[in-house]
C-alpha cells in the first residue's frame, strides 16, 4: 500500500508527513518527525510512556494510527514547556525528585497536564486514578503524585 499524505498540527506548528497505513502515531512521531520525547515502553497501550494529547484527549500514541492524525491538533512532551519557560509540572517534577531513570517522565507529565488543564482541583485520589495508566518502575509513585499535587497548587495560585 502507498503512503498517505498527512497534514496535522503538532505543538502549535503545522506539520506534514507521509505515513505508512499500518504505522502508529508513535512510530510517525519518533521515526518520521524526530520527536523522540514520546517513549515506547510496551507498544500496546499499557504503560503510558507515549502519552500525547490528541484533539484535547489523552491517548497512547502507540494505539493511534498515524493516518488518524490528519487534521488533528497534537501536543507532545516537546510542546509542554512554553519556549524557555518550563511548565509548572516540569518544575515540580524536578524539585520533587519525581524522576529517577526518567523514561516514564514525558508520559506522566503529558498525562498530568491533561488532567490539570481540565480539573485544576484534582486531589490525590483523583490524580492516582488518572495516572493509573502510566507505569513507573523506579519511584513507587510517591514523589510523582506529590509533584502533581504541588504543581496543581502552584497553577491554582498563578493561572496561566
Amino acid at each position: 500500500m502507498s503512503k498517505k499524505h498527512i497534514t496535522t498540527r503538532i505543538n502549535g506548528e503545522d506539520v506534514e508527513f507521509l505515513a505508512e497505513p499500518g504505522a502508529s502515531l508513535l512510530a510517525a512521531l519518533r521515526d518520521e518527525l524526530g520527536l523522540t520525547g514520546s517513549k515506547e515502553g510496551c507498544n500496546n497501550g499499557n504503560c503510558g510512556a507515549c502519552n500525547v494529547v490528541f484533539d484535547g484527549a489523552l491517548v497512547n500514541a502507540c494505539c493511534v494510527l498515524a493516518v488518524e492524525a490528519n487534521g488533528v491538533e497534537i501536543t507532545t512532551i516537546e510542546g509542554v514547556a512554553n519556549g524557555e519557560e518550563l511548565h509548572p509540572l516540569q518544575t515540580s517534577f524536578l524539585e520533587n525528585a519525581a524522576l529517577q531513570c526518567g523514561i516514564c517522565t514525558p508520559g506522566f507529565i503529558v498525562a498530568a497536564k491533561a488532567l490539570l488543564d481540565k480539573e485544576p482541583d484534582a486531589d490525590e485520589a483523583r490524580i492516582r486514578h488518572w495516572l493509573a495508566g502510566n507505569l513507573c518502575r523506579c519511584t513507587g509513585y510517591d514523589k510523582i503524585v506529590r509533584a502533581v499535587l504541588d504543581a496543581a497548587a502552584d497553577m491554582r495560585r498563578t493561572p496561566a
Partner: peptide
C-alpha cells in the same frame, strides 16, 4: 541538601536521548 539534578531538564522536556532514540 536537595538540589535539582543536572540532567533533569532534558528528562522533563523529552530531550534526553535513550537507547531507542539513536538515529
Amino acid at each position: 541538601t536537595r538540589p535539582v539534578r543536572p540532567d533533569g531538564i532534558d528528562k522533563v522536556t523529552g530531550r534526553a536521548q535513550y537507547g531507542a532514540d539513536t538515529r
